[in-house]
């Protein structure tokens, strides 16, 4: 008997790991690498920023510790507040990564909450998809916006569980469920996961994966938390595939036989 392997499929490429991790906020590159290894992630996000000119030459870079030939880099548009800035950033990313097409689009609307600006996000997605990018898009948990982004041609929809860096967990599982039920492309939770159970719940809801950064990097022991997240994602996925029992307030059907009781 052969069982079909359960893999994550994004933009025509398969991945064994359903955990995608960011590379920010770590103590140093060594810790970044150890945490990524412990997480088992194959897709890792990176930001695009100005290079230091004339200072700290020979300083190690992220790429020395997390080689782009071993991982799938997912350049993001973190910090962009307009469609134009996001598109400009990802064009640079494509040049930087030798024509690499898979990107994470996020356009923020408010520096205090980091809530996404879905109007600018949609504008940017339209341009990027016309230019041949495979766009994984960060968005709110609005099912209509999610569907619109899918219709435009985004290869993965990534609604927030709660605000970026908040660790508040999944605040609206019902909206996520609606998004998942209606999507024909992978839905991944991006942002808001705080601990392993949050990741497991996301997967149990039917998410195809989870993207996180702060939950791992800001844990007391990021490397152990990365390992915990790996297990939570796997456990949640298996639970989803297994199909949970129906919830009921109480059951008249005990787990142990009613026959053969001593008397």
């Amino acid at each position: 008997m052969t069982q079909k392997k359960d893999q994550l499929l994004i933009a025509g490429k398969t991945y064994q790991s359903r955990l995608l991790v960011g590379t920010g906020k770590y103590k140093d590159f060594e810790q970044t690498r150890l945490a990524i290894d412990a997480s088992g992630a194959e897709i890792i996000t990176v930001a695009i920023r100005r290079t230091n000119i004339g200072q700290n030459e020979g300083e190690p870079s992220l790429l020395d510790f997390v080689p782009p030939n071993r991982f799938t880099y997912l350049p993001n548009t973190a910090g962009c507040y307009s469609a134009d800035d996001a598109v400009r950033t990802l064009r640079l990313a494509r040049e930087l990564l030798d024509g690499h097409k898979l990107v994470k689009l996020e356009v923020l609307g408010d520096p205090k909450t980091l809530y996404p600006n879905v109007i600018e996000t949609i504008k940017a997605a339209e341009v990027l998809i016309k230019e041949g990018f495979d766009v994984m898009v960060y968005t709110s948990d609005d099912p209509i916006v999610a569907k619109e982004l899918e219709n435009i041609g985004c290869c993965a929809i990534m609604p927030l569980a709660s605000l970026i860096g908040s660790g508040m967990g999944i605040l609206n599982p019902w909206n996520l469920q609606i998004i998942i039920e209606h999507a024909k492309v992978p839905v991944l939770v991006d942002a808001g996961v705080g601990t392993a159970s949050d990741a497991a719940i996301a997967m149990e809801l039917g998410c195809e994966g989870v993207l996180m950064n702060t939950a791992i990097a800001s844990a007391n022991d990021p490397i152990m938390m990365a390992s915990a997240m790996k297990k939570a994602i796997e456990a949640g996925r298996e639970a989803f595939l297994a199909g949970r029992m129906a919830k009921k307030l109480y059951s008249a059907s005990p787990s142990s036989p009613t026959q053969g009781m001593i008397s």
Partner: peptide, 10 residues
């Protein structure tokens, strides 16, 4: 000119 590279980010 803008000269950019990849850095850690989420």
């Amino acid at each position: 000119l803008e000269i950019v590279g990849a850095v850690g980010g989420g």
